[in-house]
Design a protein around this nucleic acid. Structure first.
Lengths: 186, 186
DNA sequence: CAACCTGGAGAACGATCGTTCTCCGACTGG
DNA sequence: CCAGTCGGAGAACGATCGTTCTCCAGGTTG
């Protein structure tokens, strides 16, 4: 097994385990067992668990950005592209192992202890906000709408996770449409 | 020190430490040092750390319910009572040690490991949702509005925590007002 | 073939943590 | 004053975890 595939297997295994059980609850030995990569090799590739955690989060950040970009750009109508964000969330929340947003969860678990994790989480949410802001601009909506839609999306993520239901994505979508369609000043 | 004050000091110290640093990051010895209650006494009152965690969350649940109830019932106009929820959030987010909602954080940290914690978090959020639903009914808004406002509130909590700014409460308030005022069908 | 390097399995190490135990001082009832 | 109880301080215990080390098999190069 070369370095590239070992690294990929490690990131895959760690990402799944961290998301399912929480970061602190997963020991390095569990990652070794799930990935098939020895501890020695693991520590050659990632000098500490924290390095691995950060790499996992950064990779997930890029993956979600690409996924969401593909999802929203598949629609032509600008308003529909905004609403597509909430359809994306609905599909995500419907997955049987959905446990909330990994970045929100990591912030809750490690935000007090790791400034690096905080920075990665902020970067991810800032990129998400920027994406929404671009869609809002394309739809000729006022810039302030973007922050409101971001709050709806983040709120749907945690509400769905806690309730164990994907419905909040639909409720957030309806709220978003109402915000976009309302004929009153802000 | 009698049992009642020992219990109160324990709950106070544990609540502060858990909220500031996360639950798993706080050892029982740190709680002993902060509360001044010996480990022996602590384990007489709470047979395990998990029991203490649950007691802390349950007490915080009741305190927040009462606080929010007082805050919203201080206004007379039904629509204003709904918006007061977001003013309450703004005050909360402005506190210098704000680190998000303790229930969302606990769910993120322990949701995979402790079914009891999950149930307490669900109960808290259900009570919060019920409170909003009552305000929505009083304001003659359609019942579906309650879920949308809950998502806005939860979203403001996490967005403010990650951004390190109380502004999301204002943005959520503006969104709520727009949802309430819009002259279009749902 | 022989010296060497690589990498795996898993033991070992040191730290931390939840929980319990030991020891001892201080207060109580008679 | 004394036997007995309570509770505190902190050591002890057992488990877990991140990280490193040991030992060894297998392949590579001269």
């Amino acid at each position: 097994m070369d370095h590239t595939t070992a690294e990929a297997r490690l990131l895959d295994a760690a990402d799944t385990l961290f998301y399912d059980r929480g970061i602190q609850a997963v020991g390095m030995d569990a990652i070794r067992a799930a990935s098939g990569v020895s501890l020695k090799r693991t520590y050659q590739l990632f000098p500490s668990k924290e390095h691995l955690v950060e790499a996992v989060l950064r990779r997930r950040d890029l993956a979600i950005r690409a996924e969401l970009e593909a999802y929203t750009s598949a629609r032509t109508n600008p308003t529909e592209r905004i609403l597509a964000v909430f359809d994306y969330l609905y599909e995500w929340f419907g997955q049987p192992d959905y446990r909330g947003c990994a970045f929100i969860n990591s912030f809750a678990e490690l935000g007090a202890a790791s400034e690096n994790v905080v920075e990665i989480v902020r970067t991810h949410k800032r990129a998400f906000a920027d994406h929404i802001a671009a869609l809002v601009a394309d739809a000729d909506q006022p810039p302030a709408r973007a922050g409101q839609l971001l709050i709806l999306a983040n709120g749907a993520m945690v509400t769905a996770a806690i309730a164990g239901s994907p419905e909040p994505a639909r409720e957030a979508r309806a709220a978003a449409r109402r915000l976009l369609d309302a004929d009153v000043p802000d």
